[in-house]
Design a binder for these strands. Structure first.
Lengths: 198, 198
DNA sequence: CACCAGAGGCTTATGGACATAGCCTAAAGG
DNA sequence: CCTTTAGGCTATGTCCATAAGCCTCTGGTG
């Protein structure tokens, strides 16, 4: 029995490859059987590295949240105000387009998730993404007490657009870039209206 | 074998009950076994009325889209402009809150769905919902050529908000109503900026 | 260098899901 | 009363996740 030299890390790597290969359905359609197949290993062997399919899914979600955060940080670095926001929004959408499965992984809710938020590693990873948006908004002069509503609006708009786009909800793909631009501009204007001048 | 008197209609009814009982997970967790159990029938019997689980899901989606359309039509009837839009948005969110499973059913993409849009019954049902939004926007004086981007922004915002809310993505539920209000107001302002005065 | 402990594979088994094939019976119409 | 057929059924196949328990390769230690 030639050891495959598996590790939790490696198992998650292979799973992410499968998620990517599966396109939009990649995350939902992920099976342990497929992971085992790619690893060249019998299914039960995976349980030495992963608690369950759910556990593996969670690991993918956490990793993907980190990547998403990285993407939007990189895009908005060195920019400020509307410029930074547009860059962030574009990077968010690009990430979802390039890795639909990973993006959808970042959005699933897991059974054990506490209502509060960042009690879990997954919760903390999600909070880290939100923190980046908050940092960009701080540059707008959005006051503390308006920050929550502003961030929720942005998340709603970005996630909604991207989710609809991935689901093919926009019909024929004409003018989708323009539509995104309009949405981002609209959100930007809304946020500015709550900002403190200065 | 006392006939259960099943019909496609009745099967879908029972399935929708199960979807409702299942809360947010209701639609995803729907199984033919559960439907058969509720109908007091063996699983294979369902295949006399329904082509497959996917077919049943599609039927639920179509019905739910009709209900969603009905809800937003009712809410915006007799109103115009921002008033109508706010009412429509509120009804949209209320529907999702009251029937999370049905709402999520309206958002799934099915395998055979053509890229164009309303070639299928499901596509036509979705288009009917969009048509209501378009009718409300027409009252704003949104010109024809800006209609598409305006509708996409609205759908993005509403769906995104509702999806995040259902997924528990907003952390502690403080000020969620206010956040929704801000989002709707922001979208409203964005649309007005593209509208032709008069 | 020999040994041993455990990590990391394996096989086997259980149970639930969807789906298909083919049978059988109750109900309806001539 | 008999025939037809819709609408049930049992049985079976395939695919999945998960659990239990075994066996072997490997690496560290005396």
């Amino acid at each position: 029995m030639a050891r495959a030299g598996l590790t939790r890390q490696r198992v998650v790597d292979l799973a992410v490859e499968l998620v990517d290969d599966g396109g939009v359905r990649g995350f939902d359609d992920l099976t342990l059987a497929a992971v085992a197949g790619r690893a060249g290993v019998a299914v039960p062997s995976l349980y030495k590295h992963v608690g369950s399919l759910e556990d593996l899914r969670r690991a993918i979600a956490i990793r993907s949240l980190g990547e998403l955060r990285e993407a939007i940080v990189t895009a908005s670095l060195g920019r400020a105000g509307s410029d930074a926001f547009h860059a962030l929004a574009g990077a968010y959408r690009s990430f979802a387009q390039q890795y639909p499965g990973r993006y959808l992984a970042t959005q699933v809710r897991f059974a054990d998730a506490p209502p509060g938020g960042d009690g879990t590693e997954r919760g903390r990873a999600a909070a880290a993404v939100v923190a980046v948006v908050a940092a960009v908004l701080a540059g707008y002069g959005v006051p503390e007490e308006r920050m929550v509503v502003a961030i929720r609006a942005i998340r709603s708009g970005l996630h909604g657009f991207v989710a609809l786009e991935l689901a093919g909800g926009f019909g024929l793909p004409t003018g989708i870039d323009d539509s995104f631009e309009f949405l981002v501009t609209t959100l930007d204007a809304g946020i500015r209206s709550t900002a403190v001048p200065g």
